[in-house]
Design a protein around this nucleic acid. Sequence first.
DNA 1: GACAATGTACTAACTGGTTAGTTTAGTCAA
DNA 2: TTGACTAAACTAACCAGTTAGTACATTGTC
Lengths: 227, 227
Amino acid sequence: MAAVKPGQKPKKDRGATRVQDPDGTRRNILEIASKEFALNGLSGARIDEIAAQTRFSKRMIYYYFGDKEGLYLHALENAYRQVREGEARLDIEGLPPVAALTRLVEFTFDHHHLHEEFIRMVMIENIHHGVYLEQSDVIRELNVTAIDHIARVYARGVEDGKFRPGLDPVELHWQVSALCFFNVSNRATFSKIFGRDIGAPDQLERLKRNTVDMVLRFASKAEVLGE
Amino acid sequence: MAAVKPGQKPKKDRGATRVQDPDGTRRNILEIASKEFALNGLSGARIDEIAAQTRFSKRMIYYYFGDKEGLYLHALENAYRQVREGEARLDIEGLPPVAALTRLVEFTFDHHHLHEEFIRMVMIENIHHGVYLEQSDVIRELNVTAIDHIARVYARGVEDGKFRPGLDPVELHWQVSALCFFNVSNRATFSKIFGRDIGAPDQLERLKRNTVDMVLRFASKAEVLGE
DNA sequence: GACAATGTACTAACTGGTTAGTTTAGTCAA
DNA sequence: TTGACTAAACTAACCAGTTAGTACATTGTC
């Protein structure tokens, strides 16, 4: 973890040629590894292949990440961190509830599409029954906040009389996730079976509208829908 | 020449002890292989391990299925076939549209839960970008009929004035699939992150009700919802 | 000099696939 | 009915390529 220990200075002063750069090395390895794991899975990814794409030797992978599973775990954490950091930038507090929920769903939809690598890592981790995610406190912490967003919007909506009471924010989040996750995760099989590319821009637009529609209709009071 | 071809049944007259049983062998191998691939993925599964669990030697896997990928493809086809055969038994033609759609969603929800192995195979195949599914005409054929069911129910509902017009049956099928698939496929990560087991019976019941609710609210005319 | 960072060259174990052979059971001529 | 013959079904042992992981040497920096 700590490539630079407390006593030492991160040697970034002198403009001299920097050949040794632990942080850069780690980042470079992790970046390549993330790509390879997302593409081929844990058992499918090859350490030699990862090393070859790196600017460093295989030895450095073991030096910094211990073993293959350690590298995978870091790649998994990395994927979650990147995505959740992106999500944290979404600001919907100022919007009225219906608009806020709309925005939230649209954002989730787009975001998942932009981060296919993340989706694939989550799929892979589920294939492994989540045993690596389980080892990471980091990931759990990152995610719990995701619920807060939707919970607050929903609470405001109930107060407003726009949303029906009695729904569970976690379940709402769950439904939104399901709708947005699936069309990235299952794009290949679905497209091939039904002969239309789910990922094509026009399809995406339709799908997004439907998804927003579905969530809003689910959360809204019946009276409000007629408006 | 060939007295008994692998796919055919040998003459079954004489009550003699049949030690050689090609069909049984194939079935035995395929059954074990399906389990192993669903559990560990294509690259994660081990031919030696599959063979060990079989009543036969490793050589027989190659004898009947050519290579690892051939075995995987057969396992994939097998998974789709089993599941679609189960679905075909669902009869909702006689029910009124709303009840029929309810039944269809409930069925899909339960069915996915009962066939986790199938869900995992689909996930794995998506990790592989569907390249194996692509090679199988069998699978495509099996699936297209799935649309017919929902298309007919929807059409009847529109006629009845219960469902709003303009929806695409494939998209409807898609939404239902998403909601029902996700809570099996992502059960591990979701449960671990949010600390509640999605697969627990009471959670399942709630989730199923919500899912049905969501689909019905999506398909129904606004006026109907108020009833 | 000390220690962190990195490369080279290696190995032990694994793993998909094959070779070379045996057993089973159906066929058919005599 | 028998025994030689054959194709199919099947096994044990092996092989060659791969792959995760290491020992050790070297270089850079404080």
